[in-house]
Each structure stands twice: as structure tokens, then as C-alpha cells.
């Protein structure tokens, strides 16, 4: 009876897993079909040759190298910036005493409730004033900080006994030295987790880059992929090949660093 129950659990989970995986499988399968053929589900042949050249064609049809470069640049700088500004602020909120600390912290947390979409309009206007539309600055600067990251890091910083901080201060370490020599190395897993989450968000961001850029030179991968659809029309094999470009780097990152990502999400959402 117990064995049957366990077997049932596995069966249900496997069914779900197939449903989760199916779109990814199709994505790859279609990307290897002959280009510009209309495909009907029961008839296309598994045995037909795999058309790897679709990837080459797709890569050539649009400046994907440029998109990759842009996405990498934007993701790396925004993630780095977010971590830097959040680490500093998280340290102040967890270790320093100053006027208005509690009020300021609550105020910042309250700001996280504002939907980013509402801020899109005035931010667009600000960037227009700064002549930043269609620049890397527009893609990067507004995202150089994250209150979520600050909050998650502050929670982590608060878990260390105060004696550690006092010991370091007594031993001649300044706040700055304590932060970078003790607190940051101690919290490397949390910082990695938070950084990965921010990187995923940044890599996949769509609406903001769509609005603040309109030249191919500045497009990030998701925007580039979207514009690619209008070029290929119903040429699904090419489109799916391009989709694979976009998806693969994060899938690899995820599979490699899964434990950090899982820990990061759990920490940021449940320990608040």
C-alpha cells in the first residue's frame, strides 16, 4: 500500500514534469526542422535530418552577437551595481546607528510596492531630458540599485552576532574594512544568490529595454528576439533556433548554480 502511494506520487510528478518540459523539447525539435516548412504535428518526421544550419542562418539574419554583447554588458553592470549599492546600504541598516534609521528603512520597503510600470512614464520623460534615450545609460543607470537586494542582504547581515563586529572594531578594523574583510566574505552564498536573481531579472527584462531603445545597436536579447519575429514571420524553425540562443545561457547558469538561486528566492521571500 505504501509502495503504491509512493509510486503514485512519482507518476503524478513525472506527468507534471513532462508538461513543464514539453515546450522546451518542442523548441529544440522545431529549431532542427527544415526551415520554412509548415509543420503538422503528426506528420513531421523524427527521422529527417537535423538542420543545424538553422542556427547559423538565424544568427546571421539579425545582429545576435550585438544583442548578446548588450545583454551581457547590461546584466553584468546592473547586477554589479545593485550588489554594490545594496551591500553598502544593507550594512548601514544592519550595523550603524543614525537619525531616522527606522523611518528611512520603512520608507524604502514601502517603495517596493510601487509597480515599476507606473514609474515607466516619468522615467522615460526624465531620460528624454537627459538625452539618454537610446544609450546604454538608459538601460543601466536606473537599475543600479535594488531595495529587494538591500532587504535580503540586511536580513543576512543581521544574523551575525554583534560581538563579531565589536571584536573587529576593537582590533582596529574600520567599518569599511569590517564590511569587506568580514561581512562580505561571510555572506558570499547569500550575495551570490541575490546577485543571480538580479542577473536573471536583468537578462530577461523586456518592457524597459523595449521602450528606451529603438536602435538595433542597443537591443538586448529579448527585445532583439521579439523584433526578429517580424523578420521571420512564420518561419518557426529559424525563430525557435533564435529562441534557443536566448534561453541557453540562463539555463546553463541555472543548472550550475541552482542551489544558490533556490536559497536566494527562499530567503528573499520568506524570511521577511
Amino acid at each position: 500500500m505504501k509502495k503504491l502511494l509512493i509510486g503514485g506520487r512519482y507518476l503524478l510528478l513525472a506527468l507534471g514534469a513532462v508538461a513543464m518540459l514539453l515546450p522546451f523539447v518542442w523548441m529544440v525539435v522545431i529549431s532542427l526542422q527544415p526551415a520554412a516548412t509548415t509543420l503538422t504535428l503528426p506528420t513531421f518526421a523524427w527521422s529527417s535530418a537535423l538542420h543545424w544550419e538553422n542556427y547559423r542562418h538565424a544568427w546571421r539574419l539579425a545582429p545576435f552577437a550585438q544583442y548578446y554583447g548588450n545583454s551581457l554588458l547590461v546584466t553584468a553592470t546592473t547586477t554589479g551595481g545593485q550588489l554594490f549599492t545594496s551591500i553598502l546600504a544593507a550594512f548601514a541598516f544592519s550595523h550603524l546607528h543614525f537619525y531616522g534609521r527606522r523611518l528611512l528603512f520603512r520608507g524604502l520597503i514601502a517603495l517596493t510596492m510601487i509597480p515599476g510600470e507606473l514609474l515607466l512614464i516619468p522615467n522615460f520623460i526624465t531620460l528624454t531630458h537627459l538625452h539618454w534615450i537610446n544609450t546604454y545609460a538608459a538601460l543601466i543607470v536606473p537599475w543600479l540599485t535594488s531595495i529587494f537586494a538591500m532587504f535580503a542582504l540586511r536580513q543576512a547581515f543581521l544574523t551575525h552576532p554583534q560581538s563579531l563586529y565589536y571584536a573587529a572594531r576593537l582590533e582596529g578594523a574600520s567599518d569599511w574594512q569590517y564590511l569587506w574583510h568580514v561581512l562580505v566574505p561571510l555572506n558570499r552564498p547569500v550575495i551570490t544568490a541575490v546577485g543571480l536573481l538580479q542577473a536573471i531579472g536583468s537578462w530577461n527584462a523586456f518592457m524597459w529595454p523595449l521602450i528606451v531603445t529603438n536602435s538595433p545597436r542597443l537591443r538586448t536579447l529579448p527585445v532583439g528576439l521579439m523584433t526578429f519575429t517580424s523578420q521571420t514571420g512564420t518561419n518557426y524553425p529559424l525563430l525557435m533556433a533564435a529562441t534557443v540562443f536566448v534561453v541557453v545561457p540562463l539555463l546553463i547558469l541555472y543548472l550550475a548554480l541552482q542551489k544558490y538561486i533556490v536559497a536566494g528566492i527562499t530567503r528573499a521571500n520568506l524570511k521577511g
Binding site: F206, T243, V247, Q258
Partner: peptide
């Protein structure tokens, strides 16, 4: 868990196209 979580790390635009 890994399988079920895959869509979350994937670009929304990409999965929407699929």
C-alpha cells in the same frame, strides 16, 4: 524541483514565442 523551476529562469519573451 529543477524541472518545474525551469520556466522561471527562462526569458518570458522566449517562452511566449514557443
Amino acid at each position: 524541483q529543477t524541472l518545474y523551476f525551469l520556466p522561471f529562469v527562462t526569458s518570458t519573451v522566449a517562452v511566449s514565442l514557443v
